[in-house]
Amino acid sequence: MVKNTSKQLPIPPHFNAVQVEEVWRVPYQDRAKEAQEWTKKHQIRPATEDETRVCLLLIDVQNTFCLPDFELFVAGQSGRGAIDDNVRLCKFIYHNLGRISAIVATLDTHTAMQIFHPIFWINEAGEHPPAMSSISGEDVQQGVWRVNPAVVPSVGKSDYDTLQNYALHYVKTLNLSSKYPLTIWPYHGKLGGIGHALVSAVEEALFFYCIARSSQTRYEIKGNNPLTENYSVLKPEVLADAEGNPIANKNTNLINYLLEFDAVIIAGQAKSHCVAWTVADLLTEIEAKDLTLAQKVYLLEDCTSPVVVPGVVDYTEAADDAFRSFAAAGMHLIKSTDTIEAWL
Rank of each mutant, 00 (worst) to 15 (best):
I266K: 13
A82F: 04
S178K: 07
T5D: 09
D30H: 02
S325P: 08
V312K: 12
E138W: 07
E34R: 03
V309E: 11
G137V: 03
E51G: 15
W277A: 14
K271M: 11
I221T: 01
P13Q: 08
W185K: 00
L191V: 14
L57H: 10
L58M: 13
H332I: 12
H196M: 10
S214P: 12
N230I: 08
E229M: 02
Y170W: 00
P130T: 02
H188W: 11
A263H: 13
K3Q: 07
A201P: 13
V275R: 09
W121G: 06
Q295F: 12
S325Q: 07
S78Y: 02
K40A: 06
K41M: 09
E127H: 13
L282Q: 14
Y180L: 12
K296V: 14
E204P: 00
P306E: 05
L9H: 05
K157V: 04
R80L: 05
I11H: 08
T339A: 14
S158L: 05
N224M: 06
Y298A: 06
L163P: 05
V171P: 11
Y257P: 09
F116H: 08
S6E: 08
V309M: 15
T183S: 15
L67F: 04
A318R: 13
V313I: 15
E21V: 15
T39R: 15
N253Q: 14
S214E: 15
A75F: 01
A263M: 12
L333K: 07
E49S: 11
A131L: 06
P153V: 01
H117V: 04
T5H: 06
K335F: 11
F70R: 09
Q19A: 09
T228I: 14
R88L: 03
S336L: 09
K235G: 10
W38Q: 02
V297A: 02
A322S: 15
R80F: 07
W38L: 06
P27Q: 04
R80T: 04
A280F: 10
Q36M: 12
N86P: 13
L163T: 00
K250G: 14
E71W: 12
V20F: 01
L333Q: 02
D290E: 10
N165M: 05
D50A: 11
